[in-house]
Design a protein around this nucleic acid. Structure first.
Length: 562
RNA sequence: CGGAGUGUAGCUCAGUUUGGCAGAGCGCUGCCUUCGGGAGGCAGAGGCCGCCGGUUCAAAUCCGGCCACUCCGACCA
């Protein structure tokens, strides 16, 4: 690829509407341009990165028996009605009609189409298990696209779907996909974590997310330093340590005028936040539901939403609803003496002699004890884990890091095979609904995640396997030296001839400009050809920010391979 | 959808308060000089000042409406 004949519009200054490193650098390096909110054009260098990533993904998947297909991006509403997702999906699903007024959607995911393909073409257990994947465009009409290509509306995703007659082969494929995803991220030289994840509305089985560690990551991950335990914080189990101490104080009702928050209460009473029980009220199917946490803990809304009778998704009760249920303002509520169902978090259930609202305006209780003063029969895990909490496998404290979710694998069970009548005959000649698995990798997001994790003050630091080219060849002041010009051309030709992917900066720019662009673009191997070295028939090799090494022009290909 | 901000040249931004010739730097074109880490000079090209309407002798600037983009929040198989 010749720089002068490609489209590589590098920018000296960071664009005004980009804030995070990957967005800024992909724009500055001339790899992407934004068309509209959440919609991006990939320019030549960017496309090469995507192709490199896709290549790795293809290799790792086909190696493990998955077969590539390509499904339509525009899909008939009929299929989505069969799976009952046409209505369930809401406004994230972009809908359109054709000239005959038939309804369609832009695909946010392909379960429906792949299940339809399966039921029309596979009817025997002999053809299972079966694992199909594609690399294709997706569209999700996000409420708020952000972070450049990290959360765009249109994006490229590798999605795979597997079909199984039994748990065993499902587990084998699940494991194989887990390994494939790990291998992809290893080859990209990324610091990543595979974590237990919330399976979401789909399915209810095991689920793992693959996260590239980065500050801008939207997810918090909890992991144990001493074991393999790792989970998305939204899913990580919080355990309570030790047992509840015996009561030593009497229950006492205290006048607390104007005290309506945990902070003001602990200050007023001169106690710590972890000696207070706080009560949060969620809307339930029949009545409001009280959720009790220790004062220093935070509610995990996903966990709370899974409690019986709590509305899903979780909704908090309004102030008016709370006043009606507790006969006092929200700042004075507590579990003692209330009629509403009370769920107590494990840590809160371990409290004794604690403080909480008295369900009477401007009054709190102190010296409260479970069982003695208030029932505690619904102890549940509803809090968000924090740094330093004990890992649920007992291996020590949890650490928390931020990650970008680039992959997700999970079980679909028989949700789609049943709703869409995709059955096969088993060896006894009986109709059976196959188990399905679903596996996704965000290709465009992965490209951005790489930049997010691997960049410095001068530009991007592409892993070799994802770099837009293997080598960046720079000629220095070639228009003043026939020899430099000819040598650069020759080196470039030899690279191409040897199958080495090269970008050749043949522009008549000053050296400083070329160096700066090369740093920004971030191809790790660099060859510089200038008059200075030519005097001794040498060119210069440099691996990103490393020492400069003088080598013979004829040995470039060899050097790159070593 | 709630809150905040920004829209002026390809990019980054002045100019808007107080209405009066459309500006700078970078980039781009040509010439000269320079030439191993984003050089310098001269001459140029490039504008629906987001859009629509209003006020005014006169609107980038004031008023009203709309749109787009960014950020925070809610949301996110």
């Amino acid at each position: 690829m010749r720089f002068s004949q490609s489209l590589i519009p590098t920018l000296r200054e960071p664009p005004a509407n980009a804030e995070i490193p990957s967005h800024i650098l992909l724009l500055r390096a001339g790899m992407i341009r934004q068309l509209a909110s959440g919609l991006f054009t990939w320019l030549p260098l960017g496309v090469r990165v995507l192709q490199k990533i896709e290549r790795i993904v293809r290799q790792e998947l086909t190696k493990r028996g998955a077969c590539e297909i390509l499904m339509p991006f525009v899909q008939p509403a009929e299929l989505w009605r069969e799976s009952e997702r046409w209505d369930a999906m809401g406004p994230d699903l972009a809908r359109l009609a054709d000239r005959h007024k038939n309804e369609y959607c832009l695909s946010p995911t392909h379960e429906e189409v792949v299940t339809d393909l399966f039921r029309n073409n596979i009817s025997s257990y002999r053809q299972l298990p079966c694992n199909l994947f594609q690399i294709n465009t997706k569209f999700r009409d996000e409420i708020r696209p952000r972070f450049g290509v990290l959360r765009s509306r249109e994006f490229i995703m590798k999605d795979a779907y597997s079909f199984h007659l039994d748990e065993e082969t499902f587990n084998e494929t699940y494991r194989a996909m887990y390994d494939a995803y790990s291998a992809v991220l290893e080859r990209l030289d990324l610091e990543y974590r595979a974590v237990q994840a919330d399976p979401g509305l789909i399915g209810d089985g095991e689920s793992h997310e693959f996260h590239v560690l980065a500050q801008v990551g939207e997810d918090a991950l909890a992991f144990s330093e001493n074991s393999s335990y790792a989970a998305n914080v939204e899913r990580a189990e919080a355990i309570a340590v030790g047992a509840r101490p015996d009561p030593s104080h009497q229950l006492e009702k205290v006048s607390t005028p104007g005290i309506a928050s945990i902070d003001s209460l602990v200050q007023f009473l001169g106690i710590e936040r972890d000696q207070v029980a706080k009560t949060i009220v969620a809307r339930g199917a029949n009545s409001p539901i009280a959720l009790v946490l220790r004062g220093d803990h935070e509610l995990n809304e996903l966990k709370a939403a899974r409690l019986p009778d709590v509305l899903q998704p979780l909704q908090f009760a309004s102030d008016a609803e709370i006043e009606r249920a507790f006969n006092c303002r929200p700042g004075s509520i507590g579990p003692v003496g209330t009629e509403v169902p009370v769920y107590v978090d494990r840590a809160a259930a371990n409290l004794s002699d604690f403080a909480c609202g008295a369900n009477e305006n401007d009054f709190h209780y102190t010296g409260v004890n479970w069982e003695r003063d208030v029932a505690c029969d619904r102890v549940v895990d509803i809090r968000r884990v924090r740094e330093g909490d004990p890992a649920p496998d007992g291996s020590g404290p949890l650490s928390i890091v931020r990650g970008i979710e680039v992959g997700h694998i999970f079980q679909l069970g028989t949700k789609y095979s049943k709703s869409m009548q995709a059955s096969v005959l088993d060896s006894d000649g009986k109709n059976t609904y196959p188990l399905m698995g679903c596996y996704g990798i965000g290709i465009t997001r992965l490209a951005a995640a790489i930049v997010e994790q691997r960049h410095d003050d001068i530009g991007i630091d592409w892993p070799i396997e994802a770099a837009p080219a293997t080598v960046h060849i720079i000629s220095l002041n070639a228009e003043r030296s026939e020899l430099v010009q000819q040598t650069a051309e020759k080196v470039y030709d030899e690279c191409l001839g040897a199958g080495v992917d090269a970008i050749y900066d043949d522009r008549s720019e000053r050296p400083g400009v070329k160096f700066a662009d090369a740093d920004l673009i971030g191809i790790p191997h660099r060859i510089m050809i200038g008059e200075r070295g030519m005097q001794r028939n040498q060119v210069e090799y440099r691996f990103r920010r490393g020492e400069i090494e003088a080598i013979a022009p004829s040995s470039v290909v060899e050097r790159l391979r070593s």
